[in-house]
Design a protein around this nucleic acid. Sequence first.
DNA 1: TTTACGATTAACT
DNA 2: GTTAATCGTAAAG
Length: 163
Amino acid sequence: MEGVGGIVVETEAYEPDDPASHSFGGPTPRNATMFGPAGTLYVYRSYGIHWCANAVCADEGVGAAVLLRALEPTIGVDVMRARRGVEDVRLLASGPGRLTQALGITAEHDGRELGKPPFALDPPRAAVEVVASPRVGITRATDLPWRYSLAGSSFVSRPRPRA
DNA sequence: TTTACGATTAACT
DNA sequence: GTTAATCGTAAAG
């Protein structure tokens, strides 16, 4: 099979009420996708150089989504290595910008439906242990423990979630 | 039209 | 640990 993929090991939640969320204060042209139906992909550019991917997880007009922060590469690792230019598998997608670069996600994919080509989405095959911790990289509402990562995973974007 | 800022990363001291 | 890179979006004039 071609393409790339892996196991999502870290996410962050964003709601309309959240001052740190793009959807805070209502829809704008930029975050329009975030208010779309659940199951779509919201892509935005950060600091002009990085792409970040969100999975919309609320009905149309709500504006809630989860930011995909880290991924454990399992499919097409070589492709990702080539794209990222790094050897260490743990660095391939350990961060929002890195994740999108490794998967080749750009504005082209904004608004696309997850679970449909070129995307595929599968439920966890086994029980997983998730830990909540404060979010990273934002300047507002940093107290909210809405960062969810796979317990014990060495692929998360930050080594020490500070349990 | 102009200006300020960001859900980041990589490089440097 | 600190700082620069880089550009689309939003808010102000």
